[in-house]
């Protein structure tokens, strides 16, 4: 009987130690990240770390509350020897955090009760609770419940409104129009709707004007090769310019 209990204790302790070590490692990794990568670290990775730690805490508390786990509260740790000397083995097992097993440190490390300060505070509160009148307590509970339910009402109402709003927005509200996007991109990229001569009716006349100065020096030699619609639109101003020029040149000979 005794042996079985001891075995159980051993296995429980082993799994607890393993969980605690995992926890320690992930906390150390997080501290390392905070200290060394605080410039590049982002929230998602920080929260990932946090989730990992909280998961490990949950599994630790699961192990401790397992049926097979003996009630640790009933066990005591008995310090056999205290010494102010440096203990190398202890330092090694604690990664140099605890170097001596001395009188001033042991009460803190082996503490199973709350700190004296916290303990007195708890005691005070418990006394206050005990000394409270039944009627008074009931009244306080009632008012408290009233306040809480009021807040609850406000929150749930706000949530309802928010949900209605977001669902209606998701269905009907449109913030951008694909047609407008295409219009704008085509305008900025290719000049759709921005060109000098947007209406097609002017094309034949300006196209006719283009023909006259075809022999002008520096004129684009390949004019005939491109479709007249685009060319006329782009070249219209130059055609006008050339016409004036050639007319000016002709005048002296006319006189």
């Amino acid at each position: 009987m005794q042996q079985r209990e001891e075995k159980q204790l051993d296995s429980a302790l082993e799994s607890i130690i393993q969980r605690v070590n995992d926890l320690k490692q992930s906390i150390a990794a997080m501290i390392f990240k905070l200290e060394n990568e605080y410039e590049t670290m982002n929230w998602p990775s920080f929260l990932d770390n946090y989730a990992l730690i909280s998961g490990q805490l949950t599994s630790l508390s699961k192990v401790m509350s397992h049926d097979k786990c003996p009630v640790l509260r009933n066990l005591t740790v008995l310090p056999l020897m205290l010494s102010p000397e440096r203990d190398e083995q202890l330092a090694q097992t604690t990664e140099h955090r605890v170097t001596t097993f001395a009188h001033d440190l042991v009460p803190d490390y082996l503490r199973t009760k709350l700190e004296p300060l916290a303990e007195t505070k708890m005691l005070q509160l418990e006394n206050k609770a005990v000394g409270l009148q039944y009627d008074n307590a009931q009244k306080q509970i009632a008012t408290y419940q009233k306040v809480v339910s009021h807040v609850w009402d406000i929150v749930s109402k706000a949530r309802e409104e928010w949900e209605v709003e977001s669902s209606s927005r998701g269905n009907t509200q449109q913030n951008s129009s694909v047609a407008d996007t295409h219009l704008l991109v085509a305008a900025v990229g290719m000049g759709k709707g921005l060109k000098m001569n947007p209406n097609g009716q002017a094309n034949p006349t300006s196209g006719g004007m283009m023909v006259a100065p075809s022999g002008r020096p520096g004129g684009a030699p390949g004019q005939g090769q491109i479709p007249p619609t685009t060319q006329a639109m782009n070249k219209a101003p130059s055609a006008i310019k050339t016409n004036i020029k050639s007319a000016a040149q002709m005048h002296p000979y006319g006189r």
Partner: peptide
């Protein structure tokens, strides 16, 4: 969904409009 930023093909735009 405020803005849909996309790759826009100019060639296809030329055909549409």
């Amino acid at each position: 969904p405020l803005v849909q930023l996309e790759k826009i093909d100019y060639k296809r735009l030329g055909n549409i409009m």
